[in-house]
């Protein structure tokens, strides 16, 4: 499985190769530039940020200090981060607890109609969330769950579960069947097979899946703003709160955006290869 199909190149084709490489680098920087600019602006003063674009300036961390400072009456950074943290962490744990056995039952010891069941899980992703939001709001209001972390935990679990089942199934299917049979013959029970044979092999896939759930839940805005606009607000809502109508805010907004996105970006960088394999390659082998 080698992707590069560059054969021996000579003369002008070599030059063409260099040009293509240069183009790839250029495209890379183009795509990255807005993120770079956001991080850069976070270290500017408002005066520097609200003016003609500046690449060189005296960096300051004052915006980061300011946006993380509590202001009475407003959603504090600490509150938003802790709300997001708990909603994301608990929902991801729940997703994994539900999805691991389900993926097992769809791949290693498949139920009879495993294709249909997998389709059902995926088809729930086809259901636009807007079609469910009004009843969810009503239910949440009736159960006094509006503006609580609990409602987000439940919904983020439901939101990420189909994706996790889909990805985990594809990772589980990569476990050679003989390996499980060997473990069976070696005298392990189901738990032994899972802990000593399957999990060590799928562990990287589990990590990538969990990470993707974290990313989606962390970035989620629609449900949060519908159901938890006041208390229990999460980081995306906090970021939008830094848009101010009274005066300059670009540097502060950039600092807040940087704080909100950087953890997820770095996590995504680390897991990029496996994430895409679980997402796409599970379907196409």
């Amino acid at each position: 499985m080698s992707g590069s199909n560059t054969g021996p190149v000579v003369g002008e084709r070599k030059l063409g190769g260099y040009l293509l490489s240069a183009l790839a680098w250029f495209v890379g920087f183009l795509f990255f530039f807005p993120v770079f600019w956001m991080v850069l602006s976070g270290f500017k003063t408002e005066a520097d940020a609200n003016g003609p674009p500046k690449l060189f300036f005296e960096p300051t961390t004052e915006q980061f200090a300011e946006v993380t400072n509590d202001t009475t009456g407003l959603l504090s950074a600490g509150e938003a981060f802790s709300n997001s943290f708990w909603a994301v962490a608990i929902s991801t744990v729940l997703v994994m607890l539900l999805a691991i056995p389900a993926a097992y039952a769809l791949s290693i010891k498949p139920v009879d109609k495993w294709r249909d069941v997998l389709f059902f899980f995926i088809s729930t992703k086809f259901l636009p969330i807007v079609a469910a939001i009004l009843p969810l709001w009503i239910i949440a209001r009736e159960l006094n769950l509006l503006n609580t972390r609990l409602i987000l935990i439940i919904l983020y679990t439901a939101m990420n579960l189909p994706l996790a089942v889909w990805m985990l199934r594809s990772f589980f299917s990569e476990v050679p069947r003989e390996l499980i049979e060997a473990a069976q013959i070696d005298g392990t029970n189901l738990r032994g097979q899972i802990t000593s044979v399957i999990l060590p092999i799928v562990a990287p896939g589990l990590a990538a899946t969990a990470l993707l759930c974290v990313i989606f839940a962390w970035n989620e805005f629609f449900l949060a703003v519908q159901l938890n606009p006041i208390e229990g607000s999460t980081v995306p809502i906090w970021v939008t709160g830094n848009v101010s109508t009274r005066g300059n805010f670009l540097a502060k907004l950039s600092a807040a955006s940087t704080l909100a996105t950087l953890p997820v970006i770095i996590a995504g960088w680390l897991a990029q290869k496996r994430m895409i394999r679980g997402l796409a390659m599970g379907a196409i082998k």
Binding site: T6, G17, F32, V35, W37, N219, V239, S257, I265
Partner: peptide, 27 residues
Amino acid sequence: RKFFGQGFVRTLIITPFLVMPVVAGLV
């Protein structure tokens, strides 16, 4: 294609997908 910094360039390019949508919009 194989070229110098292939993995790095790919990492740069996937970054926008990881950005929080509200942040992407605001930036």
